[in-house]
């Protein structure tokens, strides 16, 4: 499935109110790491620091455009559509779209099939401090859970305030405070497995694979396998049943941590997510036996 080079990828930044979308976007804008010719569509200008300096010199086509909340009774005055129309014929090469806090990634994604664009990835921010509580909220509990379920990549924010926070999910997860969090988000592609990468020279692309074992493996074997992973593997995360009980695996770069799972076994969703910057390397990981 090759896409025409002229189509612009849209990365959706979702997550409930307070999940840190605005902080994250501000960091992107301030970091200098935002590739040139990126348009940032924010849900409301509110807390986004849009000043001349952020619209960085040398890349005049960078744009931050504010969107009002979706229209109520009809779509005749639809800000997103108008923004996409305007950007279509511009030199913009990619779009970051901040979703409203109550948007479901699936529904927002539909909008990104607009002619001239394609949805690149749904990134959802999850607030380590309040997520668990919010999932029980009678008004937004289902919504918040659905946002996580529909994400291609999850970014955990505020984990410093709640170091024990752990999201029981097999989706690729990174921490907002990771050194390379911005790079990972910008490079993330939901269709990465099809060998598609976004047209930019600045951000690398990332690929992901999940591994699940039906039978327990030996702890020694697991350790060995992790050591043998190719260098392009950036992250490994998840839970594995071993002869020494359920083990939680956390690996960032070459730093691997294995911790015994102390909570009730039935709460553990078994499986490992492996994130690498080279698709071929992922394909060569053969853990099947």
């Amino acid at each position: 499935m090759t896409k025409m080079i002229t189509e612009k990828p849209i990365t959706l930044i979702g997550g409930y109110l307070g999940a840190g979308k605005t902080t994250f976007i501000n960091r992107l804008l301030n970091s200098g790491g935002l590739p040139s010719r990126t348009a940032v569509l924010v849900n409301d200008f509110g807390d986004i620091n849009v000043d001349e300096q952020l619209i960085r010199s040398g890349s005049k086509s960078d744009q931050v455009i504010g969107l009002a909340n979706g229209c109520v009774c009809c779509s005749i005055a639809d800000d997103l559509t108008s923004a996409l129309e305007v950007l279509k014929s511009s030199a913009i090469e990619r779009v970051l779209l901040e979703c409203s806090g109550v948007a479901e990634p699936h529904r927002a994604r539909v909008q990104c099939h607009y002619p001239g664009y394609y949805p690149h990835a749904s990134v959802v921010l999850v607030d380590a401090l309040n997520h668990q509580q919010r999932c029980k909220d009678k008004y937004v509990g289902t919504l918040v859970a659905a946002q996580v379920q529909q994400a291609d990549l999850i970014v955990i924010s505020k984990s410093a305030l709640n170091p024990d926070f752990c999201l029981q999910t097999l989706q690729p997860t990174i921490d907002a405070d990771d050194q390379d969090a911005m790079e990972v988000v910008l490079g993330w592609g939901s269709d990465a497995n099809h060998g598609h990468s976004i047209p930019t020279n600045l951000a690398p692309s990332f690929f992901t694979q999940t591994w699940q074992s039906r039978l327990p493996v030996s702890l020694a074997d697991l350790t060995q396998r992790l050591e043998d992973l190719p260098g392009s593997v950036q992250r490994v995360k998840g839970l594995v049943a071993t002869d020494a009980g359920i083990i939680e695996v956390q690996r960032v770069g070459t730093d691997t941590q294995l911790t015994p799972w102390t909570q009730p076994p039935h709460t553990a969703q078994l499986g490992l997510v492996i994130i690498a910057s080279a698709a071929d390397d992922l394909a060569s990981i053969d853990w099947a036996s």
Binding site: S75, D78, L80, T81, S82, C112, H113, Y114, P115
Partner: peptide, 22 residues
């Protein structure tokens, strides 16, 4: 394909509706 416009049927819906309305 995939963008909620069925050009054969001349049908524009959801995501594709904005394109038509614009």
């Amino acid at each position: 394909p995939g963008m909620q416009i069925d050009i054969e049927r001349g049908w524009f819906f959801e995501g594709g509706l904005g394109y038509a309305i614009n």
